[in-house]
């Protein structure tokens, strides 16, 4: 396992796509910060900016992970690992760990750059504890993104198909998030009149659940530094990760590698 990890991390480090992904996300962070700073007449609070660039995170990570893992199948190098006597479980876990590390690196660097720029230009309305709490929740969301895309890429076993599936899934989850977010942000009363678009009761619980289980929904909450239910957020993330690691690993054992 250690040998595989060493080989996979070396490849990740020398893979220009991870650096391209980091550069893109930092570019987005700088762009968002400048836009927020220059476009508004009033002083923008830091809480509105700090996690805003992560809106694109799920899509960038989908491309990175599916490319990185898909390459192992596309170039056929996964065969070398199996013939070298490395177990399927080790291959799966090593690829996943490497992918998750890349996700965390992109997340941390993007957030650090945004914070570094933000504290100089925006109204400081975020305490260190608040930032730390949301940053930690974001770490869980990062792991979920990495686990889902990693599992799919490893089970699909074809570079172009895994890129297509991961990107479609990313956009699908983004669309779902936009829909649930639009429903959940509705106020119960608008100008003292009952808002007909406001949902309540079981329907609202279902929408909240959909928003929480969807990592893009979590990113939406993160970008506005609001949280519906942090326990549910973390619980669902752990469930995602367990399914991706456990079920994915079981299915990978049976996979016919070409």
């Amino acid at each position: 396992m250690y040998k595989l990890l060493r080989a996979d991390f070396y490849r990740m480090y020398h893979n220009k796509r991870i650096w391209l992904c980091i550069a893109s996300m930092i570019g987005v962070a700088i762009f968002f910060s400048i836009t927020q700073y220059t476009a508004m007449d009033y002083s923008v609070p830091l809480s509105r900016v700090i996690f805003l660039p992560l809106t694109f995170y799920g899509i960038a990570i989908a491309a990175l992970i599916s490319f990185y893992i898909g390459e192992d199948f596309g170039d056929g190098v996964i065969r070398n690992k199996v013939v070298a006597g490395r177990g399927r479980c080790s291959i799966y876990v090593s690829n996943l760990i490497c992918g998750l590390s890349a996700c965390l690196l992109v997340y941390v660097l993007t957030t650090v750059v945004t914070v570094a720029m933000g504290i100089n230009y925006f109204e400081k309305d975020v305490t260190f504890v608040e930032f730390g709490t949301f940053f930690a929740l974001g770490l869980f969301t990062s792991l979920v993104f990495g686990s889902i895309y990693g599992m799919l890429s490893l089970l699909i076993g074809n570079k172009s198909t895994s890129i297509m599936v991961c990107m479609c899934l990313a956009f699908g989850m983004l669309c779902l998030c936009l829909h649930t977010n639009q429903i959940l942000v509705q106020q119960q009363y608008k100008d003292g009149i009952l808002n007909l678009h406001y949902v309540s009761g079981a329907k609202r619980v279902m929408y909240e659940f959909l928003h929480d289980i969807n990592p893009f929904g979590q990113i939406a909450q993160l970008s506005s530094m609001t949280c519906l239910n942090w326990k549910r957020w973390v619980g669902l993330d752990i469930l995602w990760i367990v399914v991706a690691v456990g079920l994915g690993n079981v299915l990978f054992q049976r996979k016919n590698i070409r």
């Binding site: 490849r11 056929g76 190098v77 070398n80 013939v83 070409r258």
Partner: peptide
């Protein structure tokens, strides 16, 4: 299996 080496279909190399 560690005592064998194989090239299956196309050479498995990082391009």
């Amino acid at each position: 299996r560690r005592r064998m080496g194989a090239v299956v279909e196309t050479p498995a190399i990082y391009l």
